[in-house]
Structure formats: structure tokens, C-alpha cells
């Protein structure tokens, strides 16, 4: 997967939810296919470790370095997508 996506230039919300599911599972009370863009990760059932695992997977699969500064203040999927895609565009 990392080879296939290493040249991808954009992380979509579908890509993100797929990675969230496979890296940290899905809380039974949450539908990740619903309108989640502006929900806090905490409200979606993802704690800091789940977010860390998700970001590590994005970093591997998309071949980008996502340092602590990139993720500073990121609390929702929309903010994470923006941060990742900014880094992908600059790469």
C-alpha cells in the first residue's frame, strides 16, 4: 500500500476513514461514513494514541513526514486533512 500511495498528492476523507478503521478500529456508536469532518476525534472515539497510530499510518502510506508541528492544534478530521494535504502539496 505504501508504494501505491507514495506518489498520491491528496488524502481524501474516504482515505482517512479507511486508515482510521484499519489502524485503530471504529467505535460501535459512531458511523465514520457519516458527516464527521467537523467532529472532534475524541467524540469519534479516538484518543490520542489512536490519533498517533492513524497519523503514523498516513505518514508511512503517503511517504510524508508529519511532525508534531504539523499536527499542532489538529482536533477534527477536516483539520487533519488540511494539515496532511498542505504537507503533501509542499513535498
Amino acid at each position: 500500500m505504501s508504494d501505491a500511495n507514495a506518489t498520491a498528492t491528496e488524502l481524501t476523507v474516504e482515505d482517512l476513514t479507511g486508515i482510521m478503521r484499519s489502524s485503530a478500529g471504529e467505535d460501535e456508536s459512531v458511523d465514520l461514513d457519516g458527516d464527521i469532518l467537523d467532529s472532534a476525534f475524541a467524540d469519534l472515539g479516538y484518543d490520542s494514541l489512536a490519533l498517533l497510530e492513524t497519523v503514523a499510518r498516513i505518514s508511512r502510506d503517503y511517504g510524508v513526514e508529519l511532525g508534531d508541528d504539523v499536527l499542532d492544534g489538529v482536533e477534527t478530521p477536516r483539520e487533519l486533512l488540511a494539515a496532511v494535504n498542505r504537507t503533501l502539496a509542499a513535498a
Partner: peptide, 8 residues
Amino acid sequence: IPSRLVPQ
């Protein structure tokens, strides 16, 4: 096992 617990 709940889905959230499987990967961990």
C-alpha cells in the same frame, strides 16, 4: 471484542 480494541 469491540472494533476499537482489535488493533491494540
